[in-house]
Design a protein around this nucleic acid. Sequence first.
DNA 1: TTATTATATCGTAATATTGCGATATATAAT
DNA 2: ATTATATATCGCAATATTACGATATAATAA
Lengths: 109, 109
Amino acid sequence: MGLTKSEIFTDEQNQLSTLLKAIAHPARIAILQRIIISNTCICGDLVGELGLAQATISQHLKELKLAGIIQGTIEGVSVCYCINPQTWKLLEAQLGGFLASYKGETTCC
Amino acid sequence: MGLTKSEIFTDEQNQLSTLLKAIAHPARIAILQRIIISNTCICGDLVGELGLAQATISQHLKELKLAGIIQGTIEGVSVCYCINPQTWKLLEAQLGGFLASYKGETTCC
DNA sequence: TTATTATATCGTAATATTGCGATATATAAT
DNA sequence: ATTATATATCGCAATATTACGATATAATAA
């Protein structure tokens, strides 16, 4: 069918997978790293630095924004994008809990 | 085009996005949680517990295996799947570094 | 007003993902 | 050898993602 059956999973599982999906692309990882380093990001910079077309980068920014991971404020002609601290904290918490739940015991295999 | 341009990104960015992509699905999160809790997982259990067909679960297990996140050993008629500690550690390290690189300073926006 | 510049959106093609029924394979039991 | 059980693979349909050229929008500059 090609459609994820979200209704059979918990809200936590769906929320975490949505956040992870937003980050699970090299271009979006690169964009986030760039935003974090600059601490003040303008889309135009990215177009020059990454080897992707302006339309493509704008679309990736839109997806990150939709997931709540970044937020943008209009700064004259350009737009200033930065990390949304709340969502970042949420991601750290959810993901941290998930990753830490595996204690590394080798009972089988 | 629909094809990720991996060649323009760093190995780290590509590797992290591949691992994240493997986890970025509620069914695969549920499967991993189940494996972690049981510490000895057999595919058949999952078919009963999650509301997905056997073929679908087998495919999700295959993807997790392909990404190196889980490993399976044949245990008689069934297969015992468990977490691959090395990959899990790698994921924790890469992701931890990435998430921690954002310090939460509010310089703009 | 008319450029100019920065970003967003539209439309489209190529490819990937999700899910499942049907079927194959492989081990164990009878 | 036959049957039962567990898992994998095939093939397909529906939908999603990725990328980009073309075009629209919106704000400043001339």
